[in-house]
């Protein structure tokens, strides 16, 4: 029960941080999203030890574990684009599918090679 309250309070902290980041982006006309600013902000606060890991750990664990839940309304939102999907949905899907697979193969293999290369160099 105590942990439940702690988790909820910490999640509220993350929500406030997100709001603050959005305000910063809007006021400074930054070309990045609020989440990127928020990550940097929190990282900085952790770095200068203004915030301790223990204060926000439970909340962050919950948010990360349930991340897929937060994407469900957006996924349901696909129903808004019925005509586009009916019209050129298949071609768009094939484009995205092929491109995504190629990106995964390239980024994954290149990353694996470079990480391995660095490790062998160190030995």
């Amino acid at each position: 029960m105590k942990n439940l309250f702690k988790t909820a309070a910490q999640v509220v902290f993350f929500i406030i941080l997100a709001e603050v980041s959005d305000v910063i982006v809007a006021k400074l006309y930054l070309p990045v999203s609020g989440s990127v600013v928020g990550i940097m902000l929190l990282f900085g606060l952790l770095q200068i030890k203004a915030i301790r890991m223990e204060w926000i750990e439970l909340g962050s664990k919950w948010l990360l574990a349930e991340m897929l839940l937060f994407f469900i309304p957006a996924a349901v939102g696909i129903t808004k684009y019925k005509s586009l999907i009916l019209h050129s949905g298949m071609v768009i899907f094939i484009t995205i599918f092929c491109s995504t697979i190629l990106v995964m193969v390239l980024a994954g293999i290149l990353g694996e090679r470079m990480v391995r290369g660095r490790r062998e160099e160190a030995q």
Partner: peptide, 27 residues
């Protein structure tokens, strides 16, 4: 969808806080 999103859309608002929580794993 608008009726649905009126309630369920609150979940979407948690995407950004969850993304910001990644700062901890980075750190």
């Amino acid at each position: 969808f608008d009726q649905y999103d009126e309630g369920a859309g609150w979940l979407t608002k948690l995407v950004e806080p969850a993304t910001i929580a990644l700062a901890i794993t980075l750190y």
